[in-house]
Simulated assay, not measured.
Amino acid sequence: MFHALRVAAVDRLTDDAVAVTLAVPPELRETYRHVPGQHITLRRVIDGIEVRRTYSICAPATAEPVLRVGIRHVEAGAFSSFALKELAVGDEVDVMPPTGRFVLEPRPGHFAAVVGGSGITPVLSIAATLLEREPSARFCLIRTDRTAASAMFLEETAELKDRFPERFHLVHTLSREERQTGLPSGRLDAERLTELLPALLPVADVDGWFLCGPHGLVDGAEQALLGLGVPRSRVHQEIFHVEGSVGESPARPAAPAAGGSGPEATVTATLDGRQGSWPAQPGETVLETVLRHRADAPYACKGGVCGTCRVRLLDGEVRMDVNYALEDDEVDSGYVLACQSHPATPTVTVDFDA
């Protein structure tokens, strides 16, 4: 469910990025209380067209929820263009409550992250909350940006280093700019990370790895970690959403389903405790079928990235086109992305509430 929230601040981060803070009224504090690493979906009608975009919360998780998100402009991006050029303090934006499973509940241990570009956003919340709440925890942040001028939240990460010098290790690389000190410039691919990570920290002793950014970086970091013997269960990843497109890199292979997409199927869905059954039109995804009858069905990117439309498959089989959002254990537990799932059996039953 969306609620209209007032824009409390719009802060310029770089030439092409802003941080937007949304005011949460007292009666909605519990609704918008977030776990570090979660994201929110923003909705706005632009030129008569409803536009939804998902952005990660960068603020630490506090008693009184602070909704602050980083928005980077992308070419032809409807919402990002609006946010950078028009959005102002006092405006109202429809906001969905926080969701997402790329999270870390504060606990003792040693944690690390490899992030690129705007992938810093959820990890900033994760690291700040962990260090503030758990005195024995340590965090190593390895971030990469094109140039120093393009890096989002530089001041915030520098502040963490000043506040927690013994427990927060920051490594910043640039792919398109040489620096007088620090690591050489260049992409952080699997080969480079395989050499770099063991030199920075005891890889085997890290209790949890958080990878966020472009698909190429996340995939390369995952390959490097698995090659270094890190159990897959310790690796958590999130591909950042780029204005309605997931790029041309291949997604993580989706769970195969027997049979092809039939021309006729019935989709049964449970949403907010109410169940309904409807015929699917040829070629429709499960989400498209449900939306024709339940406009309140949750979704954001429709590109298999954000995971907002995650459902549990209770009966039947589906074919997922792509999967950037679900981790292996979720797929094994029967979860699918409604926006990418096509019925592969005459009947399909899903649960949005699971």
Rank of each mutant, 00 (worst) to 15 (best):
R176F: 11
A221V: 08
S81I: 05
T289Y: 08
H3Q: 06
F240M: 03
R133P: 09
R138S: 15
Q38I: 01
E243S: 02
H215G: 15
T308C: 13
T347E: 12
V95G: 02
R310K: 14
V235R: 01
F82T: 07
R133S: 09
A295P: 15
E330Y: 12
L287C: 03
A280K: 00
D91E: 02
L196N: 07
E27I: 00
L200F: 06
H293C: 13
C339D: 06
R52V: 12
R53G: 09
L196D: 11
D321P: 12
R167W: 02
A137S: 11
C140S: 09
E327K: 02
V331I: 13
A199G: 14
M320F: 09
R72S: 14
Y324N: 00
G273V: 02
P202S: 00
A88D: 08
A59F: 02
H172P: 07
R29E: 13
R179W: 15
P198W: 08
T121M: 06
A254Q: 04
Y335P: 07
T157V: 08
V20S: 07
V286C: 01
V103P: 11
A221W: 09
R163W: 08
L201P: 09
F240S: 00
P122S: 03
E327V: 01
E178A: 14
H236L: 04
D329A: 13
G220P: 08
F153S: 02
